[in-house]
Design a protein around this nucleic acid. Structure first.
Lengths: 214, 214, 214, 214
DNA sequence: AATGAATGAGAGTTCATTCAT
DNA sequence: AATGAATGAACTCTCATTCAT
């Protein structure tokens, strides 16, 4: 059974996704949950603290997945991790990316944490890429190329929903389209070893099914 | 000499970029311009109309550039158009992309126009790509690959600033970094003919200068 | 061809009836007429002056009808004047009665004129009643009875539309229902001479036709 | 001790009567009460809800009086109920009638309730009249006559203050004059049994006292 | 006569937040 | 833990009116 604090978080995430964080008042949240505003402020000092709590939850989930990676194994995991594993998480917390800029402008404390988090994510992605390169799944590349591979993959991963939501209302299908964005983006960097891997083909086929429905 | 209406637009753009559209009140705009709120509402029926006007201005500029392309000429223009030409425009109107999601959630009329505009942009990018393919600057590709090349280029073009602004405050440098995002994204699709072209190399060099400063 | 001033009056009357005088801005009027607000204020010092002008027009029409009465003739004219003649006028200027109270509260100069006008109307009605009594169309009565006959007839004449408009949207039918209100109100005071008059019966029949449609 | 909600209602009624509902801002109400506007909106979703609450209060009072009537008793109660009982209530809530039209034009939800309420009042008055007819206090009449007796009595009851307020500032005296309007209006329909009733004479005398002061 | 840009006050409403209970 | 009443600032928008041209 969820605590009130957890319920506030869950309700806030729903409303933030639905109407936008700035368009959601603390009263909205309290009303939807069926608690008083006073109680909400008992659990969270202010609105920004709710946002930060949500963000920390998001980070925890993402890190748990990344930390479960065994860097000793010779395995192509980029697809699993980048394309499928985070799908649910990214949908659930989508407002964090979709509204990123206005959140940064409106909540200074959140901004700080986000900036730190990005640094961590960059390191993570680089580590992942280097591992894949060392095992021959991804082509070797210059540092510049690596840097922009990292930035582009972050940009695509966090913003693809902006694009698809303008073209279709089907959130699940759009999320899968976003995975294809990642897949096709990474494809030119894959080695023959990767492209020959049958799991890779399976994933492309799986994802393409939904795309045809647009 | 700019009209009041034009001045409202310019001031709004500045403030929207600075504080976010939702954090900018009509009074802010009027105050910064030194006019009365009443006068602002004399020129614009409501805040959304200001936003739409800004967006239509943006579209006009983008289309002017695109329409000036001579599709008969055998020329590599992707770099010029995608990477450098729109640089200034994209910086000036950056809030349109950075805050896209909350704008869509808050302004229904704007949303409609944006949806139409995206369809047009997709067509434009496809036309451009096909032209470049036909002249041998870009490798031939399947329809699916094309679709995701288009979507990824849109996503990167419109969202790269989100990324760099988290890492640095230097807006001009960040914009050039964004151009490099586009350059490195497109690079795997370039043919030998493109890569041998000396203008292409020049541009990479030019852009990389600023990047080292991060 | 109507002057601009006359056109402002006519347009104002339409809008005041439609939305209420207080809900109609000077800009509404100017827009509907297709002139500028400045021009409207060139012709009328302020909104109250428009209202007063309308009221003076109304008075002029009402007085013209009353002054055309020949008090020497032995004739039953109450029905003509009270029930049918003013029908059009009262519909056209209906907001003056329907919104009377808020107009009095909002426009002090209008209030003065209205108060004077009521005194005149009271005199008129009394004169009319005395004439009808002297010719045997209406029963003789005490001064008190006369005073309340006068006040009630004014109240019913000016306010009957309030009632019918709550029950039906058919303005013309409602106006005729209002005439029946006047007819049935006055009926108990009619003498046998009146009730035997065939014009009286005709009018009752004529008006009742529409009433059945409610 | 009155709750804040009740105090808002009472203050609103005072101000609406004094200046008109449309001329009274929510800020006026809050200021006069000495509370913040935010608090006012905590208790009422919007201005229309205040108006509706007032109206429902009014209805409740009127119905309580009507429901206390014992329709089994052979009694002349029209005068008591129509002329004297509602006096205070009608004065307290006078703006509801005096400004009826502009309220209907400005507040759509209020309009609905008002339309329903009128239907109920018509039924009530008819029931009352039929009872009085069956006990021989009022003359029998045709259905048409009945319908217009009903409509006229409603019109006079709700609008008589419009008339007297134009002639005198004495609100209490005007309200009594309004009762005389009702009395003299109903008088022609009274039977000998009524007119012989000594309570009826008493009431006429009582009310006429104030009238002489005009 | 007529325009259209401009003003400043004020409208209704919402919001994040506080606090006594 | 929780309530609900309260605050005050800010929001978008409208209005009657003015005035230079």
């Amino acid at each position: 059974m969820a605590t009130t604090k957890e319920k506030i978080i869950e309700t806030s995430i729903e409303l933030f996704n639905e109407k936008g964080c700035l368009n959601t008042s603390t009263r909205h949240i309290a009303d939807k949950l069926g608690i008083s505003v006073g109680n909400l402020y008992y659990h969270f000092k202010n609105k920004e603290k709710i946002l930060i709590d949500i963000f920390l939850n998001y980070i925890k989930i993402v890190f748990k997945e990344v930390n479960s990676i065994n860097y000793e194994k010779d395995e192509i995991f980029l697809l699993k991790d980048f394309l499928l594993n985070n799908l649910e998480t990214d949908i659930k917390y989508r407002f964090l990316h979709l509204e990123l800029n206005i959140l940064l402008l409106s909540f200074p404390e959140f901004k700080k944490i986000m900036e730190e988090q990005l640094q961590n994510e960059i390191k993570m992605i680089k580590k992942l890429l280097n591992h894949q390169i060392s095992y021959g799944y991804i082509k070797a590349m210059s540092e510049n190329e690596m840097n922009f591979l990292v930035s582009n993959s972050w940009i695509i991963a966090t913003n693809n929903l902006s694009y698809w939501n303008l073209l279709s209302k089907d959130l699940i299908a759009n999320a899968k389209r976003g995975s294809l964005n990642m897949y096709y983006f990474i494809k030119p960097y894959l080695t023959q070893k990767s492209l020959g891997n049958e799991r890779v083909k399976d994933i492309e086929d799986l994802l393409l099914k939904d795309y045809y429905e647009l």
